[in-house]
Amino acid sequence: MSDSETAKAAARREKARRAPAKWLLAPAVIFLLVWMIVPLAMTAYYSARNYNLMMPSITGWAGWTNYRILWGDPTFWSALGVTLLIVLVCLIVTVGLGLALALLFHRNFVGRGVARTLAVAPFFVMPVVTGLIWKNMLFHPAYGLLAWLFRTLGLEPVDWLAQFPLASIITMISWEWTPFAMLVLLTGLQSLPEDQLEAVRLDGANKWHEFRHIVIPHLGQVLYVVVMLESIFFLTSFAEIYTTTSGGPGTATTNLAYYIFQGTFVQYDIGVSSAAAIGAVILANIFAIFLIRFVAGNLNAGEAR
């Protein structure tokens, strides 16, 4: 057998060896295509079409028209603002509260186990249920707990969802997500080596120095992950808004997700909604790119270690 024949045989064997890999990869690839790429492509396609269910006769390519309509729609811009406001404020509240709670639960005290379970509980409540609980049991101006509290104190009950709609939504979302931040930060705290704290204590640090120079840098990576994951969830907040304010009063609590929902299922303008969805995809991607970069960066750093 000549050399080239041997090489060919080797290549053939290599090919045969690799063949099953393709088949084994296929389900994941197909899943990705069907569940992500196809809807994304269809959304992009619709965003360039005249496609309003109320006007079925108008069809065909719309070019940039849908995007132009979107650009000129003040509600879209207000929805964008509301979305960013929700993301920003919820992040500050959940990370701040989560960190405080994590520090608290990192210490030993009587009943810590029970208290921790209770503190985590909101995370396991479905968003829809969260919305209903807050709307009917807490915020309700007649039957709500807060109304009762105000009356007991001799104050006028407040109709929270009507008077402070966005603050109410932010409260609900924060209530739901603080446990998540707390859990992740708590695991971060628990992985902090005790001897580093001892070393810094011997180096002359007080409690604040410990926190500032050891705890926070140690939590840096988990904090980043919490911020990024929560950003993506907050960007798509919907159920809490749908079950309570329905985006109102007016458009006070209409975020991007709700705006798209309304465009599609209330105004039936699938073209414009698709354009808005593409906008949301771009926004989410800006966050996601940061996240992936960071995670990948961490993996590389881990290898160097």
Binding site: D195, E198, A199, L202
Partner: peptide, 11 residues
């Protein structure tokens, strides 16, 4: 104190 694990500040 010098610790067994060195306890250097990693960041």
């Amino acid at each position: 104190m010098v610790f067994q694990s060195y306890a250097l500040y990693p960041h």
